[in-house]
Amino acid sequence: MNAIETHDLCKSFHGIYAVENLNLTVPEGAIYGFIGENGSGKSTTEKLICGLLVPTHGKIKLYGKPYRNPAERAQIGTLIEDPACFPGSTVYQNMMMQALNLDVKDPEDEIARVLDLVQMTEHADKKFGKCSLGMKQRIGIAQALLGHPKLLVLDEPINGLDTEGCRIVRETLQYINREEGVTILITSHILDELSKIATHYGIIKEGRLIQQIRAEQMSERCRDHILVRTANDMKAFGFLRRQFETETSESGIKVYGEPDSMKISAMLMEEQIPVVQLETKRIGLEEYYIGIMEEARSA
């Protein structure tokens, strides 16, 4: 079953579409990284899913049911933009208000549990407005975790976090996904962090979903390789493919499985094939994403 499905989802503001014909599928149990440029429609999509914006057209389903079904909505934890807390109230009071919203049994114990998960227990009596940006983000995540939700919708949750804060959030999300099977829809511009936890990715551009891909598929496409250009690429390709896994592309010959570029250079020189360019390419999520965006621009 899919945790989230959208069907031709559209949202326009004053005639301009922020989200257009979006068909998003988030499998149950996934950590779905939703990535795109600023203003591409990521936050708008999340707000639509959470019922904070009214769709112009289209449908949203949560676990196969209409998204306005109260039973399903009660199981969503959200952090959309800034944490939803009153600055003049303490961290504990803000957490208690959300616990009351959720009708949580033993709210004091539940608040203690989630604050401990994000390592914010010692700040419970601090006024929320006096907390730093990073602390506020962790409190927002703790609030989203109240009541053991089965779906988390997080918009830029690691914004403003230092390295330690990122680690805490990453480990918390991985823990609840692994141990409790929580599905997570997460947007972030920090692709390096996202690549450490996401199992699926959706790439959005100008309100349209241009690709949905599993992390394993992306890994296949993002393999490290050595890019070779020679004076005689045809001869070089014929020679190299007998030794290594290779692939031709517009930018040159891609050689997989051999980390030592000097070895490849020496081999080609022995065959009297002059090397014009030799470069080690390390492809991560960021490079893959930029490549997809460039393809979309030129399409």
Partner: peptide, 18 residues
């Protein structure tokens, strides 16, 4: 107004569509 200004309505209306 402070429910809206603080963003608390995000939590409320996510849970309670009605």
């Amino acid at each position: 107004g402070n429910d809206y200004k603080s963003g608390a309505v995000k939590n409320i209306f996510s849970l309670f569509p009605k």
